[in-house]
């Protein structure tokens, strides 16, 4: 009869799915059409070698810059999710500090070319070998594996948008002041995601697969934090003077 559960109607789920999907498309940094036009231009071998020859700190600084650019789009995405701006400012900061990089990793599957195992980076598509100078091969492998797994689900933009919002609105983040309000928002987002997956006749296991992605995302973020502190131990001045301020604020 159109009632999904006493608190949330089908119409409300459709509305939420529409708003989140629109927010995602407005802030996704790269539209799929743009990406298709770029026809997966891979870096040439000499370009790959020039990245590999960069000093470690220079490559780190470049990657920190690219991550920070992507995070700024995620902040804009969050601001457009209805309910997010009604949260107290403390909780908005907590959710973005913990979740913005996770959404960046989710969004990476949109710019991942599974045929060549390459990812859009610095104007072309780069394989893991481009990032050798970072000295974080295990993290890079995990990032590429995650992008490959996510892209193998072939999620629509609407499904990706709702999953991104679901991850961002994690009620289990520490330091939340109004956990209950975040929980309510996350539950509604999950219901909207389930509703869209059913509407798109996705097979049942997709939601469970997406739930498993949440722990993979947490592990990617802690790997990133470990690598950053190891790097900063060797190059404290580089981080302080050359890394983007927002990056230092979030991960410092």
């Amino acid at each position: 009869n159109g009632e999904t559960s006493p608190t949330v109607s089908m119409a409300e789920l459709d509305h939420l799915a529409h708003v989140v999907s629109k927010s995602h498309l407005e802030t996704c940094q790269y539209l799929r059409e743009e990406l298709q036009q770029m026809n997966c231009q891979n870096f040439l071998q000499d370009e790959v070698e020039s990245y590999q020859k960069k000093p470690r700190e220079v490559m780190w600084q470049l990657c920190a810059l690219k991550i920070t650019e992507a995070i700024q789009y995620v902040v804009e995405f969050a601001k457009r999710i209805n309910g997010f701006m009604d949260l107290c400012q403390n909780d908005q900061i907590v959710l973005l500090k913990a979740g913005s990089l996770e959404v960046v990793f989710i969004r990476m599957c949109r710019v991942f070319d599974s045929h060549n195992n390459t990812i859009y980076f610095d104007r072309k598509f780069a394989g893991p070998d481009v990032f050798k100078a970072l000295g974080c091969d295990d993290l890079i492998t995990s990032v590429f594996d995650f992008a490959k797994n996510m892209s193998s689900l072939h999620l629509t933009e609407e499904e990706l948008a709702l999953f991104s919002a679901f991850v961002l609105l994690s009620a289990d983040r520490s330091w939340l002041q109004d956990k209950l309000q975040v929980e309510k928002l996350q539950q509604k987002t999950q219901l909207a995601l389930q509703h869209v997956l059913q509407k798109n006749q996705r097979e049942d296991g997709v939601l469970n697969k997406l739930r498993c992605k949440v722990s993979a995302l947490r592990s990617l973020c802690s790997q990133h934090t470990e690598k950053l502190s190891a790097f900063r131990a060797i190059y404290p001045d580089i981080v302080r003077t050359h890394f983007p301020p927002l990056y230092k604020e979030l991960f410092g």
């Binding site: 457009r80 403390n90 927002l246």
Partner: peptide, 17 residues
């Protein structure tokens, strides 16, 4: 937390362009 995250706080305050 707001004190330690001035940039993020500012981004959140900016109107959604």
């Amino acid at each position: 937390l707001k004190e330690k995250h001035k940039i993020l706080h500012q981004l959140l305050q900016n109107s959604t362009s």
